[in-house]
Amino acid sequence: MPTLEGGRRRRGRGGSGQLSAPRLRSDVPERAGLDPDRLRRLAATVHGLTAGDRPWAAGAVLAVGRGPVLAVEEAAGWAVRYAAYDPRGGAGVELPAAARVPVTAGTPFDLASLTKLFTAVAAVQQIERGTLGIDAEVGGYLPDFRAAAAHRLTVRQLLTHTSGLRPELPLYDCADDAERLARLRAEAPAGAAGTYRYSDVNMLLLQQVLERITGRALDVLVHEGITRPLGMTATCFGPCPGAAATEDQRRPWAKADRGMLRGVVHDENAWALGGVAGHAGLFSTARDLAVFCRALLAGGSYGPARILGPDFVELLLTPPGLGFALDQPWFMGELAGRGAAGHTGFTGTSLILDRATDTFVVLLANTVHPCRRPPDSRPRAATATEVARAVRGR
């Protein structure tokens, strides 16, 4: 395991002597040791999630793979189905059939909180390089963030959601960037450190740390350190023309009045911060996320590229997980229990990688189109369970 303070230096990314890891290839489920009948039924189920007058999601894309094989890539429904949301009728105002935009396998989706996984990887990259200490105090890097410094918050606490910080700050109500930054600098924990409390503010502070120690913006760090070396050309912070639509964002159900959103970030705080935030803002496709999963399952390498060394992937995914949630049946179904890692996003996205079976599941959906509603992760869990049962010999 790497040292916890600063990390152990290893070969540079793409350095000489590095073995090339297999790239993903599309192939039949049998080549991946997956039950083809179960996966055919699962692919059909995705279409059911987007059917009817009040579907689980307007559109969805499912990607399932094991080892280097991408065994399922199924698209269903609509990237854009509604023109607006009618609060009186409690339903969407549907576009004429000719004006709707179908989902394809290459449709980008607003990842929402899946962005946190990329922020976590960017942080662990700095730990590997020795420029960031996992148990170092945030105040050591950000002395002007008075509350974090006074409460001696650590990088590990930010990554594990144990800082005590509240879930979010209403940065979208601030007058300008100066006021938003002042709010972040003054924000003190609302609870005792050491207790799990999921918080977007953790990743916003981590973003500030990363940008301070590297001198580069988060979108640059993600591009140069993760998406470009992995060839994830469809993954970026917005704007992202052609992305699946999300919400007709209006008060009182939303926190801002922005109208129907497509290609711009859904999260109100990320929007207020210009679209680049540690907790939200990325757009991506199912295939690009399949590559991200494959790289982590392969110990940090994909083709000739390496984004992390194996020891640091282990650090990332060792309980309780750094940025990643581990073994959560509520969205991982029967894949949970042996070290499965992943995350969900408020817009309807989810990602699971199961190291025990070398399997990944990506389900991207726009469940908030045309309007947000109480989250329902049962389809995510059911999908993961079907994949778990498709792994032959499980």
Rank of each mutant, 00 (worst) to 15 (best):
A234G: 15
D288K: 04
A290F: 10
I307L: 10
G225C: 11
P239I: 07
A245C: 08
F312P: 11
S284E: 02
A272R: 05
A290T: 10
G278A: 04
E268K: 06
A234E: 15
A245E: 13
T227F: 09
G215T: 01
D219S: 08
G303W: 03
V220E: 15
L221T: 00
A305I: 12
L315N: 02
V313F: 02
I213W: 01
L230Y: 10
A295N: 07
A270R: 00
L218N: 04
P304L: 06
P229Q: 08
V313C: 08
L261V: 11
D288E: 04
L205R: 02
A295F: 00
R294H: 13
F237N: 01
D267W: 10
T246F: 07
L218I: 03
P304H: 12
L230D: 06
G300E: 02
M260Y: 15
N269W: 00
L273F: 04
L206S: 02
I307Y: 00
G281L: 07
C293L: 04
T285K: 09
R294T: 14
L308H: 11
G300D: 01
A280W: 04
L316V: 09
D311W: 10
R228Y: 06
A245D: 11
L230T: 08
L261G: 10
P310Y: 08
L315R: 03
C236Q: 14
V276C: 08
A256G: 14
L308Y: 02
G259S: 10
D267N: 09
P310G: 09
A256V: 15
I226H: 04
P304K: 09
G274H: 02
T318V: 10
G225R: 12
M232W: 07
L204E: 06
L218T: 00
